[in-house]
Design a protein around this nucleic acid. Structure first.
Lengths: 245, 245, 245, 245
DNA sequence: TATGAATGAGAGTTCATTCAT
DNA sequence: CATGAATGAACTCTCATTCAT
């Protein structure tokens, strides 16, 4: 199922679109793919892939059902286009930040985390991950795409920040991959949660304070990473922590 | 009005045959819920709630569509039954373990985590959370159910373990809820991943070693929790961690 | 679809049943058909033929679904049995009453009407007509049966009462059939109504007072029938007969 | 997910073809509701509400199942639309006729009755009442609807005609509601009958002459209503009419 | 290009009927 | 005789996709 001609065209159009206002006839036509993708993102994040109706997407973008199919040959291709547009640029920037950072590695990690939060975590883009998680199994062609374009780079990014800390003697020599996971997971998990259960109005559920959660998480994990933290540690308790299988 | 043609049944029945002997009917009656729940769990985790067809569940359990409805009045109730059987009991047990535990709070937490891994994390049941995350928005009935029967109790469980550590002077006085989140999230996130992208065969993805991840996570977080760990830590870096960089 | 062997057997049993109390094992078995028919009548009248579930009939009669099918080979046969038992004897008696009545024809008709009300109109049996009306079209074999055993005799009964009035010079010479219809229809209609819309709790519907309706109806129609009424006299005495507005 | 095979449509379509020419699509769009309503009316009256399958309605109107739901969101709404189109308007018109009528009240009632017969009684629409009677118990939503939109207005219509007669001194002072009932019931009952048992081909049933029945009925009841009729009545028969025999 | 009427394969659920026990 | 677990056809309603205009 290669990206169709129509789909590819829309991609090149996107570049030319921009963020202008004037609702010229011409303009609208050029902006169509943009508008459709925006509508689709919002709905996919809200309701998931399967539960999003193409008609609703079209409606939200202000076009008819038929028009949607003029730009994207199927719901699946529409979804792919959304994913591509949403997550592609977001990782390279981070990698660069790591390379050029001057301060302590703890501060670097805190900075990365906060940047991620501002750029992704608190935007609808964060919801994409929920959709992927939820529906790759029913939509296998997306798995490789997402693994290559999103997951691997993100892992490299945080791993390299941890490696930097270790190499500079700031962090203990923990497994890179696992440490990166421990760093990212709570934040990702929180985001996931916010886009699903958190968005439902369930009785007795305290609205989790995202920033507070992040603060505690960083406090906890950075302290666990730092070599100085280990200094005062007396017992081998933590070492045996995972032991009791 | 007249529904079935006689004798058609034997054909479909043979699939399920083979294991039973004497009081067939009765034995089946008792085993059914188990079989249906197993089939349902597998399919729900695989395909999600909405995409799982009741007929497929029935087929997998070796019965007809109608039989499924003899045991569970709706797909939603079937799902709830799956959750109850797999998650609800476990949390109650954990709560008791906390009340009676004698050792250090770090060990307690490690023990809870390991128990969870043995009983849920490495079984198909771990996939349930993925389903919930993916589809609560479209099935509000399930949201409240899951919040009440799983999320709230699980939060109470881990919060109480952390509180125990704080009260006994073992842990720093961190916000209970946030700390519990930091404890649970990486593990949950890992299983989430395993049941979605991890279950697809993507090139170049190292299968994450779950046990290693957990070990590192515990090492990191428990060290971050413990008061002794804080002893040597003197710089303000971690304290300012959450500060806008 | 001739009455099945099982069904016929139940019929002869019915005769032997009676109205006894003692719940002997023996007794219950003999009473089964009776109980099943009672349950079926109640439910058919309530919900109609198609919407009545055989399981509910069985339950109400205190037996299992399978047992019902031991006595009646299908829902259709069960329904026929109910109709037969309920309406068969009810007409002959009326015919005899007409033959032996001594008073005025107006009184005779009023008496017939009241008898019908006591014996049928205010009992569940009246609901049978609703079911027939509602579902003969989907159940054609019942039409002939009902026309022969219920409708024709009832028409003969009232027609003969009108003919008596005309022959004795009490009534005007109206078409028998049409007059009989005018006599019966409002009462039948009322009963029909009571068993359908009247049984629903709709806003703003005044519960129709059955006896009052009948009184007005008789007042109106008998006055219309009588020859003297046509005379053109002046008093208002009878005018107040049904009065009570 | 992919639903249809291309080109399958033409086959089923041919059935509906033949009447159209140029702006086919649009013309159809406008005619559809009419066609669907006609098909629905016929089938509802024939088989009842529950036993009518939506697919059959669609088929009869020459469209697919899905198309029906494009016009009416549910079977119940389809039914309501049928009722509205056939009955609701008529009653309003009748009400106006009462307000503006100049002649005698007897003539007014006869006129109302005849109008009803021409517009409803002798059309398939007359069968609607049968459907309601038969199935309101199982569809409470329809009960309220019919009570509000048909029964109450119809009762008001005939009651007001009777009141007019009383106020003008033409009719005796009978209870309005009961008199209206006596006026409407025989006619309703007759059509009820025609659409159920009357529609079956039973041996030995004289097809009732509807017009003759109506004539006799009017003759009888109007005479019963009029004050002049009461003039000559001297016997106590009518007075004792309601008396328990 | 754009529209939106039309399609039809399913999905969940119900229930008359059967038959092993 | 009696039971009740099991069946599976049928029913309403949904929605991705097509195509005449």
């Amino acid at each position: 199922m290669p990206p169709s001609v129509v789909g590819r065209r829309s991609a090149s159009r996107t570049v030319a679109a921009g963020r202008d206002r004037a609702p010229t006839r011409r303009r609208r036509k050029e902006a169509r793919p943009q508008e459709l993708l925006d509508a689709a993102l919002a709905l996919f994040v809200d309701k998931g892939f399967a539960a999003t109706r193409t008609e609703e997407v079209a409606q939200r973008a202000g076009v008819s059902k038929g028009t949607l199919y003029l730009y994207y040959p199927s719901k699946a291709e529409l979804f792919k286009a959304v994913v591509r547009r949403t997550l592609t640029h977001l990782i390279a920037e981070g990698q660069e930040a790591v390379a050029q950072y001057q301060g302590s590695s703890s501060d670097l990690i805190a900075a990365l985390m906060n940047a991620w939060w501002e750029r992704v975590g608190c935007t609808p883009a964060a919801g994409i991950h929920k959709v992927i998680l939820a529906e790759v199994r029913n939509f296998p062609e997306l798995a490789q795409f997402y693994a290559d374009e999103v997951l691997a780079p993100a892992d490299r990014l945080f791993s390299s920040a941890v490696r930097r800390g270790i190499e500079r003697g700031e962090f203990r020599a923990l497994p890179l991959h696992a440490a990166a996971h421990a760093l990212m997971a709570p934040v990702m998990f929180m985001t996931l949660h916010q886009h699903s259960i958190g968005a439902c109005h369930v009785h007795g559920a305290q609205p989790p304070d995202a920033r507070a959660l992040m603060r505690t998480h960083l406090d906890l994990v950075l302290r666990g990473l730092e070599v100085r933290a280990a200094a005062g540690a007396r017992t081998s308790a933590p070492a045996r922590a995972g032991a009791r299988p």
